[in-house]
Amino acid sequence: MHILLSGTASDSHTWNLVYLQLFLEELGHRVHNLGPCVPDGLLAGACAADGPGRPDLVVVSSVNGHGYRDGLGAVQALRRAGVTLPVVIGGKLGVAGVPDPRQRRRLLDAGCDAVFDDGDTGALREYLDLLAGGGRAARQAVA
């Protein structure tokens, strides 16, 4: 798959993105790493890329505590822009350090295909296998 990898609008962290790029590449995927602090417009533009680099999946990673809010904004903007690609998000999504089921529900309702807990690369891998196998799972909150 071609995977578009992105940080969120206000998140400056990059090690999560460096790691995920290596992780996804080792699973045999091609990765376009947009880097940190990606505004919604840039993300939507990259999703719309056509030709050989056309993405099959958007992976959003956030660790600065604004992930629920920024991720929600990003997925809403993508869906508004008519992007139908699967979009998944994961990381440390809130400031409290524990997953918030209510916020997670909002992400899924807004059009996220999956929400992954911090460090749960096993669940991400399973999701990728499923997607690569042609199945797009019902929207799920993983783990």
Binding site: A9, S10, D11, S12, C37, N64, H66
Partner: peptide, 11 residues
């Protein structure tokens, strides 16, 4: 905060 850092006063 991160919003002010990136100049997004609205957020």
């Amino acid at each position: 905060d991160s919003y002010t850092r990136v100049g997004d006063q609205d957020a």
